[in-house]
Amino acid sequence: MTAETDLIKLYSQRILALAADMPLAERLEAPMASVKKRAPLCGSTVTVDLDVEDGRISRFGQDVKACALGQASAALMGQNILGRTQAEVEAARDALKAMLKDGGPPPGAPFAGYDVLEPARDYKNRHASIMLALEATSQAMAEAQQADCA
């Protein structure tokens, strides 16, 4: 395959559609936790706001300033984030990292759909942007639960 064909595959119509239709793309007013993560190599940023009730995400908002791959990843997460536990978010984060770095399978239910990002495995400079949303959400959940216990 040529470099141009690889890029076309990488930025598929499905990825571009996900990036264009991101759920929960509004910041929350007075969230229990708010975390901003930045990918140093490309400058992508994701800010996550959330509330946790009974160990599950009850409210969620995100502000995503990233490439189409980072946006698609945040959109996939946003489709399924409400009602999720910290363990589910961490499992999805770890599976996504293994998919990108080690050729593992994409995250499963309730975070299905990340297979669309499998072509990004070969683009290590995009991995940090793809990981931002799940990393920020995991950290925000930990902070919210700590604040709730304090």
Rank of each mutant, 00 (worst) to 15 (best):
N80G: 08
A147N: 05
L132S: 08
A120K: 02
Q62S: 10
R93A: 08
L132E: 04
S12Q: 14
M32E: 13
A92R: 00
Y11Q: 06
M32Q: 15
P31H: 04
P105C: 01
A66I: 05
P106Q: 07
R59V: 06
P106N: 12
K124H: 14
A128T: 09
K9V: 14
T45W: 04
R14P: 00
A109H: 13
E90D: 15
V48R: 06
A136P: 04
Y123C: 10
A17I: 03
A39I: 10
A68I: 01
A109R: 12
L134C: 04
K36C: 15
L41I: 15
D54Q: 13
P119D: 11
G113I: 01
S58N: 10
A3L: 13
A147S: 11
M22L: 12
A87E: 15
D94Q: 10
L41P: 06
E29P: 11
L16N: 09
C149F: 09
I15V: 15
L117M: 08
A92L: 07
Y114N: 03
E29A: 15
I8V: 14
E53Y: 00
H127F: 04
Q71K: 15
L28D: 12
P110R: 02
S129L: 04
L10H: 11
L28P: 14
I57F: 14
Y123M: 12
L76N: 09
H127A: 07
A17Y: 10
E90G: 00
K65C: 06
A72G: 15
R126L: 07
D94W: 01
A128H: 07
Q79D: 04
I15Q: 07
A74K: 05
P107Y: 12
D63Y: 00
P107I: 03
R59L: 08
M77A: 12
G70P: 08
E29R: 08
I15H: 02
G83M: 08
A92Y: 10
G61V: 02
A39E: 08
R27Q: 13
D6P: 00
D115W: 08
A33G: 04
A112H: 01
A33Y: 06
R27G: 11
S73L: 07
T47C: 02
